[in-house]
Structures are given as C-alpha cells and as structure tokens.
Design a protein around this nucleic acid. Structure first.
Lengths: 193, 193
DNA sequence: GTATAATGATACCGATCGGTAGCGCTGTCA
DNA sequence: TGACAGCGCTACCGATCGGTATCATTATAC
C-alpha cells in the first residue's frame, strides 16, 4: 500500500498527522492536546510526526492554514452557486453560516479559539487569524460595495461582528432560528443609516 | 500588619491571589499560566494559595465569577447614569462597550476566552460563561422589549451577536469608529424587520 | 503568659510536557 | 543486488505541570 508513487515526499503520512491533530485541536483546544495523543490517534510514529512538522507550533499553524483555505473554498462554492446578485450572494453566505454554527460538534471559529490560547501577537496562530479576519472584512466590504450602501466600511464591519458573534454563540442560536436571525439582521444593517 | 482584625477568614491573602491570577489568566490564558507563577507574582506562599483555592479550577472559576460580577456592576452603573429611556440606555451601554473593547490591553471577553480552553461543557468555566451570556441576552431582551420592536427575541439576539463580535474583534475596531459602528448598527437592527 | 489561627519557606511528589537519539524494517528504483 | 528514503519502535531527555507534606514563624485573643 502507500499513496505515493512519485518521487516527491509522501503526503499520506503528513496528512494523517494533520488530520488527527486538526480534529483533536478543534475538539479540545491546542494546549489540552499533547503530542503523544496526536501520535496515538494518527497512527504515525512520533519520529515521523517530527520529521514532517518540526515543532508543535508548526502543526498548529498548518491546522489554521488548512482551516482558512477550506473556509474560503466553501465560501467560494456558495458564491458560485448563488444568483448573480450581491444581496442574494450575502443571503446565501448567511444561510451557510447559520447552518454551520448550529451543526453538531460545532465548537466555534478555530481561528478565534486557537488565537485566544496564545498571548504573543507574533505567534503564528495570531498572524493567521489576523489575515483570515482581514480577508473576511475585505470580502464583506466588496459585497456591500456592490449592493451600494452609504458607508460600506461600517456596514461590512457590522456584518463581520454579527458573523463573529454567531461563531462564538456556543449553542445560543438554534437550528430553527439561526439563519433567520442572521439574514434579517443583515437586511436591517444594509438598510440602516 | 495584616488587613483583618475580625474573627472571619482573612480576605487579604485570598484577594492577593485572585488579583494576580486574574491578571495573569486574562493576559496569557489559563493553561499558559502555571501555579508557580501565580505564587511568585502574588507574593503568597504556595501552601496558602491552596488553602484558599483547593485547585486551579477553583481559581479559574473565581476569576470568571469576579469578572461576571464586575461586568454587571459596571453595566448597572451605565444604566443608572443614562436618561430614563430604553433607547438612550442601550446607546450608553454601547458607548461603554465600544470604549471597553478598544482600550489598551483589551484582549477579548474573559468568559469567551477561558471557556474556549475547556472542552467539557460541564467545566466550571463553561457553566459560568453560559450563565453570563444568558444574563446578557435577558437584559438585552428587556431593553428592546421596552423600546418596542416586532420580534424582541430576535433583535436581542442580534444585538448580542454584534456585541460578542466586538468582544472578539481583536484590534479590528478602532478607537475612532468603534462606538459609531456599534451604535449605528444597533439603530439599524432596532429599525429592521 | 499561652492557646489559636493563618502564613511562609522549602523540599518534594508522580505525571506529563515538547522534543530527540538510535536502530531496525520495508518498499522503491536503478 | 545494493543504495536509499521513509517509517516505526523504544527509550530517553530536561523541564514543567498541579498539588502536598513538614515545620517554623507570626499575629491576634483571652
């Protein structure tokens, strides 16, 4: 067996490690998960883990980078499937987010959660989070710009706050109401001053 | 010396410990701070620390309970100073929150930050956070009820999301714009569907 | 005085932390 | 066949984790 048949580095092993680490980090927090547990649950020897990721911080960064890419991949998928209309686009995204934050096992935004564990603003997790949230703001700003509001910067920020609030809502949003609350809230913000 | 002269337990020592622990927990995260450091920076012997708080979790809970009480104490102060008018009350609270989240050294809502470090929903930190956020929702619901909106539950939740978003904004809100963005956002949400 | 209660200092506990060394095994490619 | 690369296994490292035991010191109350 083995996935690779080419001369490049084997991706199967690194992926097994990253997959197990991501699941454990998200479910338990980074500092609560020891490397030994990642070794055990990935089925990869400790030596090999450290051959692919030279330190735990690298693994943390790889986790957040992956989450970042995956988030925007799904975002782009929603946008592509939405009617070619900025308001409908935003509503589709909020439908996606509303379902996302109320699905089983959802434990908040990984960027926010992990960054909260590291005080140093120069820690990789903090940098990746800043970039991720800046990208979010940029995209929201683009959408509200196309919709046409009087203060697009403010409105984009307000939508960003609403979304980050939903990310940290921790069960306070129900499956039945989350999408409605987000979409109606966005409508109100778009119509606002 | 010594602060106590009555028969009850000495509060000075416990307060020194809680004060140092609170500062360290908030600035660095709970798991990043060892008990030895709390001993060192509080100036209280380890034995005495454990005489007042039987485990680290108890200290964590005491920190969040104190933050909770202090938050509502300030909230009540804002409300008391505001004009007797639910909308002005809400605007005063958002003025307070906007300044709070942009002040130096602000590192997010302690309830959110600490709860993110503990996966078990029955951990004291998680329970205190749930209670804190439920209280927030209740108070917002009361205010918007007095203002009179068509769906007070939804509007209160939207305001809560906006506020929690501000709490986790991590420098994205500037001193110049935070209050305006929050207040205008709330106005829009109140006027919404 | 003397009893009582609280604190401080030091040394220590087993467990776990992130990370490394050494060595043998296995599969691929020339 | 032989070189080589990637992986697994075991044992280990110093440091730190949360928490405890022992005992001396201090201050107040009677």
């Amino acid at each position: 067996m083995g996935v690779n048949r080419n001369g490049s580095a084997d991706r199967g092993t690194a992926e097994k490690v990253l997959s197990a680490a991501s699941r454990l980090f998200y479910a338990n927090g980074v500092r609560a998960v020891g490397m030994e547990r990642i070794v055990a649950e990935s089925g990869v020897a400790k030596t090999s883990v450290y051959r692919h990721f030279h330190a735990k911080d690298e693994l943390v960064a790889a986790f957040l980078e992956w989450e970042d890419r995956e988030f925007w991949r799904q975002w782009d998928g929603i946008v592509a499937a939405a009617p070619n209309n900025p308001k409908a686009e935003l509503m589709s995204l909020l439908d996606w987010i509303g379902k996302r934050v109320t699905r089983d096992g959802y434990r908040g935004c990984p960027q926010i959660n992990v960054a909260a564990e590291f005080a140093d603003p120069e820690h990789p997790a903090r940098k990746i989070r800043r970039r991720h949230k800046a990208e979010m703001l940029k995209r929201l700003r683009d959408i509200v710009g196309r919709i046409g509001v009087t203060r697009p910067g403010d409105t984009a920020m307000q939508l960003g706050l609403l979304i980050d609030g939903a990310f940290t809502s921790d069960g306070r949003l129900s499956k039945a109401s989350a999408v409605r609350i987000l979409q109606n809230g966005a409508e109100a913000l778009l119509a606002g001053t």
